[in-house]
Amino acid sequence: MGVLRYVAKRLGLYLAVLFIGLTITFMLPRLMPTNPVDGYIGQLQSRANGTLTSEAIAEMRTNLEQLYGLNGDIFTQYVGYLKRVVLQFDFGPSFTYYPQPVSAMILNALPWTLGLLLTATFIAWVLGNMVGLVAGYFHKKRAASVLEFLGILLYPIPYYILAVTVLLLLAYIFPIFPLSPTFPVGQMTPEKIGMIFYNSLLPGITLVLAGFGWNILSMKALAVATTEEPYVTYARLKGASNWTRMTRYVFRNALLPQVTALALSLGMVFNGALLTEMIFSYPGIGLIMRTAATGGDYNVLYGAITLSIIAVATAGLVIDLIYPLLDPRIRHK
């Protein structure tokens, strides 16, 4: 009963966030003083050395406006936009790769990005939390500070430096991994999957290393604070073993904020995708976004931004739905 209402409330909130996000994405570019159709026609005109007649331009304008949903007043455009995006996940064709539809481009790239970044983020989270927990629980022991040092060492390195260093080290100096990876397309066979896995290892390692440090430091701080809680002291005085106290007392309680952090970082994978995919020429959303940004491909950008909004909002929904399972205090509200 209460569960249903809780879920319904969260779902409602989720849909509201999506709606607001889509609306802002729609509104923002329209507040700009430039008109994409004018820009596009201007480009064509200059390429054609001004030989286009005004009739041709007028016809092209109607066609383009039709194509990109820019005809009618702003309200008609808005309704049309919502209809296309929500019902058909249709962002129109790409400017650069006309007439390829944006949704197809995004859907092709999505499994690549999600496969690499979700896995890497999750592994970094699990490893970082385990190391951080041990470092925090045994923070009075000198050996544990070595673990913390690992976090302090890794955390401040900017990702691009880390990635380029790893690339140099493991692909150039010690050529264990390919310097310019190749990612096969088309029908998947076991060999192709193995090749993809092998080629993805290097970007994966850099992502794990980059996320690892933050997770260690964060979990360590949480675990140190939790070991001082009266219930942990009491568990010690009850004679509960170090293992029980570390896992069931410190970890279970320190985990709660970390779950939020995980969900948020999973929602933010598209930000991380950009640099990783550029450095390792990995065929995901990041690479598409970069091409779109430099080429002024509005529709692709629309699609990518919408996807980010959906990702972050979905991550928020997932936290909201998982959290009560971990924290009984929220479950019984």
């Binding site: 809680e229 069931r248 007392y249 279970r252 205090r329």
Partner: peptide
């Protein structure tokens, strides 16, 4: 401190 000597999540 009986108020917080019990593990809140167990």
């Amino acid at each position: 401190s009986s108020m917080n000597s019990l593990n809140p999540v167990i």
